[in-house]
Design a protein around this nucleic acid. Sequence first.
RNA 1: GCGAAAGUGGCGGAAUUGGCAGACGCGCCAGACUUAGGAUCUGGUCCCGCAAGGGGUGGGGGUUCGAGUCCCCCCUUUCGCACCA
Length: 830
Amino acid sequence: MDAQYDPQQIELKWQKRWEEAHLFDADPDPSRQKYYVLEMLPYPSGDIHMGHVRNYTLGDALARYKWMRGFNVLHPIGWDAFGLPAENAAIKHQRHPSEFTFSFIDRMRGQLKRLGFSYDWQREIATCVPEYYRWNQWFFLRMYERGLAYRKKSRVNWCPQCETVLANEQVVDGCCWRHEDTRVIERELEQWFLRITAYAERLLDDMKELVRWPERVLTMQQNWIGKSEGTFVDFTLEGSGEPIRVFTTRVDTIFGCSALLLAPGHPLVERLIASSPSSQELRADVERIKTSAVEARAEMNLEKQGAFTGFAARNPYSGEKVPVWLANFVLMEYGTGAVMAVPAHDQRDFEFCKQYGLPIPQVIAPSDGESADVTNAAFVEHGTLVNSGPYTGLTSEEAIDQMTREAEAKGFGKGTVQYRIRDWGISRQRYWGTPIPIVYCEKCGAVPVPESDLPVVLPANVKFTGRGASPLAEVAEFVSTQCPKCGGPARRETDTMDTFVDSSWYFYRYTDPKISTAPVNLSAVQYWFPVDQYIGGIEHAILHLIYMRFFTKVMQDIRLVDFREPVARLFPQGMVIKDGAKMSKSKGNVVDPNQMCERYGADTVRLYMLFAAPAERDLDWSDAGIEGPARFLGRFHRLVMSHAGRLKSVNSASGSGSSPLNSAERRLLRKTHQTLQHVTEDLEGRWHFNTDVAMMMELANELGDLEAVVETGGIRPEVHKKSLEYLVLMMSLFTPHLADELWEALGHHEPALRAPWPDYDAALAAEEEIELPVQVNGKLRGRIRVAPEASEEEIRKTAESDEKVAPHVDGKRVVKVIVVPGKLVSIVAK
RNA sequence: GCGAAAGUGGCGGAAUUGGCAGACGCGCCAGACUUAGGAUCUGGUCCCGCAAGGGGUGGGGGUUCGAGUCCCCCCUUUCGCACCA
């Protein structure tokens, strides 16, 4: 009788109709409340993977819900299109990276469309076109003007695989974030940096506004920024009298200092070698410590090593002389590269001094009067100062305060704040990225390209050898240019920008993707921002999500935007894994969304993504598990289609109000409204879509159980239709194609997206009789049925006289009866 | 080592504020139907027990009429940070 569910045919039909109707196009409309749903834009690697499908399915359900709620929704997508894989493919196949990139974009766009996501395709952007990346250059120039982009020679993280520099954020366990088996090495290069450190305080402060961000992301960012307040103290080198500045958060412990430790790369070290009576031995020691430091960091080997320099330094507080050592665990990049070793009150110093037989004097005692043993481990808590000259007897807090002021007064130190975060190195010795808009003139030095000369376009004719420096350096027409200042011969910067620059502001561009006079259109941004909901992988918790916040702050300073934070609410979804491991080609556990689409249809794949796990948790893909949602959609299709012909012309709105409902009708509408309530509340709150799907399955099961009643006329068509319609509307968030097919079959001419989201009716959802469990002495003994409005007394009587309960109470004294309305009855009997 | 999250049937998971543990689905078992399908439908399925009943949410203790949920101790897993002075 009714046709089989044919997802392929249905899905293509509706995708075509949606496109023709421009159903998902967004336009600013001040009279309507806006809602901006953003998902992280994909890198065009060739094929959509399951992680994308999950990310975009979540965003799609939310966008559709907000549309039906009457919001003016912006739901865009684009391509993070610069990057190494395309360039590596170019090297391998000797073709241009843009060929790969654009053909991959075409392919993946097709895949996204096949999945039926509700994007406004008119706003699609790709970051690799000059119309986009010129604005990266523009931002760079604005930052350069403000001293936020600068060049310095520095030690950099170099990935031998990528043959390029990596930002600190891109080094994972001493390896490249893209090549987990490739050790990052250090190199000295002239590099461009963005001064994100200047924004450290605001990046921390403004977290106050991010109340709808998950705590763990904020914590990760906080740790990454790594603010710590402390004191600079200048020791003086014996002999030369040269100051050696250390940073400490515990100046209160300084009377317990038994050595001064230098990082092997400390600038003073060369001078020490020069003036040392045993220069050669000292140089050998420095090299040894340097090597061990590099190794220690790479191998996660935390063994401490040091060497005595033969020099001493004077502690400005105590006047004591302490030996100067080299130590492999002292970082040049943090603080001053020199630390005071206080073994009794710092565990690292303790291990070091113990190993080299240095004294371990205790200068802090616990404030509670207990004694602390510092022979086996350091006592690191705050406490009361002992053996600390004039400061003895102060608490740590008082001492830190007073001693810092003393240093300032006497000029041998000062209070300071240190951050762990480093400036963002953006130079990449690669072709497929945004050229850095700088030229080098022999006379004028580094000169910014004038704004009117932007964009600096990537040359097309390039050889991809995969060897050595940036391919741009080989293109004479690109490199040789004129100095914008003096007109003399100059050469262009041949490095390109880190692609994280591209993704730091792309979501602004969506609000007016074609504007050619500025990076963003102010009025469009004003209307659409902030992003109401951002959805993406947790792996970007510190990289992208901190860079993006940094860019917004710079944009605020140059008056491009007038707010501090771009994203109101962040949802990091869980990963899609298989057999307990991340999907990867090398493990052979990759599930291809295209194949799954061919086999089950997009609606089934999407429903499974939502059903298999709550959105924030990892989802373990199961080939067997997807069968459930697949069968369910077949049943859902049948459930509606077998009645659609008859119900098509029925007016569902006229039904329920006019005449009283019979019990089967009440039962059906109760379940319907309970489901609607659950789904509505969940979309506004927890996002446990798996339970929404489960509820809809229950409603479908209920409809199935009532089929016989429907057939005999026990449920009026208008009531039956209403229930089916609500189910279809709810399903339209998750399986939009099938929902529209069924919505049409039920006699509607507009897609479900155009229908208002129905309000649930709490009265209809309420149970008319509730079942209460009865416990006797904590054990479940029976169940009673009572009206929801029954009094405690009634409930109590019913419970005590229940035939299953009575035997457990007989002959005992009832001590207490607890009636929790709507929940249970608990009888205590002795 | 520090920080965070989590641990529930054979599996994915449910139980939002302390109140019927295991919803929904997979798998499995039994049956129906058949034009033998990538079917579909019906019933069953935490464990022990014929039953009455008993046990059960990583382990141990506690609070409570009542604990998967709260408190203390321990174990395991995952993630993040990892010599940041």
